[in-house]
């Protein structure tokens, strides 16, 4: 899961080296925290959050496949 988000995020940003995903295990499932360079935030979120939504949708399909609850947080 972590690799999936990392892979997608790195392909979208200007500074792939600053992409960093950390995992947090909680009672509501796995939480992925995505950190990117400040100037790349817009690329990750997109117009009206469309890119962020698309990433979450793809992540959800992975979550379905692995039968594990996952949510994505984009850290500002």
């Amino acid at each position: 899961m972590k690799e999936l988000v990392e892979f997608i995020a790195k392909s979208l940003v200007d500074y792939p080296d600053e992409v960093n995903v950390s995992e947090k295990e909680t009672e509501i499932g796995l939480i992925l925290e995505l950190n990117v360079a400040q100037s790349d935030l817009g690329r990750i979120i997109g117009k009206h959050g469309r890119t962020a939504k698309a990433i979450r949708t793809v992540l959800n399909s992975a979550s379905t496949k692995r039968k594990q609850k996952v949510s994505l947080e984009i850290i500002e």
Binding site: I8, S11, L12, R43, G46, R50, T51, K53, A54, I55, T57, V58, N60, S61, T64, K65
Partner: peptide
């Protein structure tokens, strides 16, 4: 059907991300 998703939304998301990253 996993990659299609509800009303094709997973497929559309994949397509959107691909367009974004290729045409960045």
């Amino acid at each position: 059907g996993l990659l299609i998703g509800k009303r094709g939304q997973t497929l559309d998301a994949l397509q959107y991300i691909l367009n974004k990253s290729i045409n960045r």
